[in-house]
Amino acid sequence: MHSDIPFSTDRLDGLLDDFGIDVLIVTSKHNIQYLLGGYYHFQFDYMEAIGISRYLPVFVYVKGAQDKSAYIANRNERDSVQNRISAGYWMPPVVYGSSTSVEAMTLAIQHVKSVATSRLQVGAEMSFLPADAADLVRRELPHCQFVEAMRPLEKLRSIKTIAELEILREASERVVASMMDAVGRIHTGHSKREIIAHLRQAELSRDMTFEYALVTMGTSLNRAPSDQRLEPGDIISLDSGGNYRGYIGDLCRMAIHGAPDGELVDLLGEIDLIQQAARASIRAGLTGRDIYAAANEALPRSPHGKQMHFVAHGMGIVSHEAPRLTASGPIPYPADDANAPLEAGMVISIETTLPHARRGFIKLEDTIAVTPDGYQAFGDGARGWNRIPS
């Protein structure tokens, strides 16, 4: 293995063996970033559409022969790639010349034909492969069979390196700090749109990319941006995803204009008890079902347990990535990892929500990294009622 390759080729080769894949044709933004150690052409950070088609980067990986890898780049990407190489980062051989999805896949197929046999199991990310590019692969590689590559790539990403964990720690800390920055700037009369604008600017000022904010105010359970305005005594939930160096910090914290009364203190305390019960059990070797068992054991002891919603899911480059621990959460997917032992380096989001009809939307969401004998919590501050200035 090349010492600078930013992923384990042995682990990837083993996963490809497990799923019967000979050659990977990677086309998703998140997996391109992961396999190239954080690289993605800056011109298409915001949108892939251009001209009559779209930007389609392609990473070709041949199992057991990483020296035969190639990156298919846009014709305007040379400066971006050169900067990456000049900074000392690994890049596979680069093939330039694409400006459409068909041109990109044509170059990728030419490379596959030059380095591999004609009968292959080709791993592709079906949700991220344009129809015109997929048709081209089927036509040009007629003896090859498509295999869904989402799962082995997801499993590859699920165990984070020390460097990745540090980025996720920073992402989480910066999101929470941004929330507290926004809370300090909020005043009565501000709309949800204005509050989100404060949060966006706070994340941008911390070298993050603002992805989203789900915000509730007062007794409303509506989390979308709107012109609803803060009234005296209102509570606010801030649930934001901020991206730092390609990794997502996704946490939820609560704020209030004025002082929380005893009932609000108790309600947030109930939520925290569920959070702590789920967190306390986490360690390498535990299963996802064990996390849910700990939370489900605590919920009946809460006066509002029947109204609460608990979910645990993987975090990293993608929200709700592996380990996938439930099939009944807000994002539908199979619970493929619910019975598998957690491994050190996995990162899990733990969240408990109470949509209270009279008091409003109350929630905590924490980011937990699995360690050999327990866990580390990232961005674990400000978990109480944070005061909005009067």
Results as ranks from 00 to 15, higher is better:
E231A: 13
G314S: 06
V23N: 06
R139Y: 01
G51P: 07
A224D: 10
A280R: 15
Y292P: 11
I274T: 12
G249K: 05
D266T: 14
I159F: 04
G314H: 01
P341T: 14
I271H: 01
D239Y: 11
P300I: 09
S172G: 02
E173M: 03
L354D: 02
E297S: 11
I167E: 09
E154F: 04
G97W: 01
L221E: 05
G233M: 09
H30K: 13
G381V: 14
H41C: 10
L286F: 04
A284P: 03
D22Y: 06
S178C: 07
M308Y: 10
A131E: 12
F59E: 10
G233A: 10
D290G: 14
P152F: 01
G97T: 06
G249V: 03
L156H: 02
M47I: 15
Y55E: 03
G246A: 08
D337K: 08
G305D: 13
A322R: 12
D181M: 08
P225T: 11
L129K: 03
T209M: 10
C252G: 06
P232G: 03
K306S: 14
L238T: 02
S237F: 00
Y34C: 01
S172D: 09
S118L: 02
F59I: 13
Y375P: 02
N339K: 00
P57M: 02
Q376G: 00
L238V: 04
A70F: 10
K29H: 11
G374N: 11
G258Q: 09
G329K: 01
I256A: 04
E297R: 15
G20S: 11
A382C: 14
H198Q: 10
D266F: 09
D10K: 06
M254I: 00
F361G: 05
L199P: 02
P323Y: 01
K29C: 09
E164K: 05
G374M: 10
G123Q: 04
Q66E: 13
P334I: 12
A382T: 11
D22A: 07
S220K: 09
M217D: 04
G379A: 12
T352Q: 05
R283W: 03
P355A: 14
I350R: 04
V112G: 02
P6A: 07
I236W: 01
V60Q: 06
R229K: 15
R358K: 15
D261C: 08
I162Y: 01
L136S: 05
I52M: 10
D290Y: 09
S328L: 07
N83Y: 13
T209S: 06
A171C: 07
Q82M: 12
F361Q: 05
A294Y: 00
A338I: 15
D18A: 15
E263G: 01
T106D: 14
E351A: 12
P93Q: 11
I25L: 15
R253Y: 08
F210Y: 15
F361K: 03
Y212P: 00
E194F: 05
I72N: 02
I32W: 00
E103D: 15
N83A: 14
G38D: 06
S69D: 08
E231T: 11
Y375V: 10
F146V: 03
D366A: 09
H309Q: 13
G345W: 03
I256Q: 05
S390V: 13
S328N: 13
G20D: 13
A382Q: 15
L153E: 03
A163H: 12
S349H: 02
T161Q: 02
G242H: 06
G189R: 03
Q376N: 06
T326C: 09
E343H: 13
I362W: 01
G345H: 03
R157Q: 15
P225I: 09
A65D: 14
